[in-house]
């Protein structure tokens, strides 16, 4: 099963991934509503650190969803009709990439097997393999 992979060494912190994710799913460039959050920053100016929140298809959200709103078949899908916004998925996500918005859970769906974030990453730090 293909999944997102991330190489820290190649990441330049441009955040184009979050921008294109939100443009694709929300119709506007709103990284705060993206389903991937990757950035780099200088910790006290002396160390380059990476925040890499991206879906690894570990399936923990799927396994813990109390209502069955989450399905997993090579990608995660959330049925918002069923989702009750309990937040269990967000709480348990090891990559801290699941977020709740207006009482519903938003999770990366790999853009149906052809992730936009991978396409836009200018340094091939994000791949899908």
């Amino acid at each position: 099963m293909k999944r997102l992979r991330f190489s820290k060494k190649k990441c330049i912190g441009c955040q184009l991934c979050g921008q294109i994710c939100s443009a694709t799913h929300e119709g506007a460039f709103v990284p705060s509503k993206a389903r991937v959050y990757i950035e780099t920053y200088y910790d006290k100016g002396g160390v380059l650190k990476y925040q890499d929140s991206y879906c690894t298809l570990c399936g923990i959200c799927f396994k813990n969803c109390p209502t069955g709103a989450i399905s997993m078949d090579g990608k995660i899908l959330v049925d918002h009709e069923v989702c009750i916004g309990c937040g269990t998925c967000a709480e348990k996500c090891p990559k801290k990439v699941v977020r709740l918005r207006d009482g519903k859970s938003y999770i990366c769906d790999t853009c149906d097997g052809d992730p936009m974030c991978v396409k836009v990453c200018p340094q091939n730090a994000l791949t899908f393999e």
Binding site: I12, C14, L16, T40
Partner: peptide
């Protein structure tokens, strides 16, 4: 070189994060 960095929306990443001795 310790790492590369660019600005927001940058495709090129010109920033070179270096350490030489105690210079960072």
């Amino acid at each position: 070189l310790e790492g590369k960095r660019g600005c927001g929306s940058c495709g090129l990443g010109c920033g070179n994060f270096l350490k030489i001795g105690d210079a960072i």
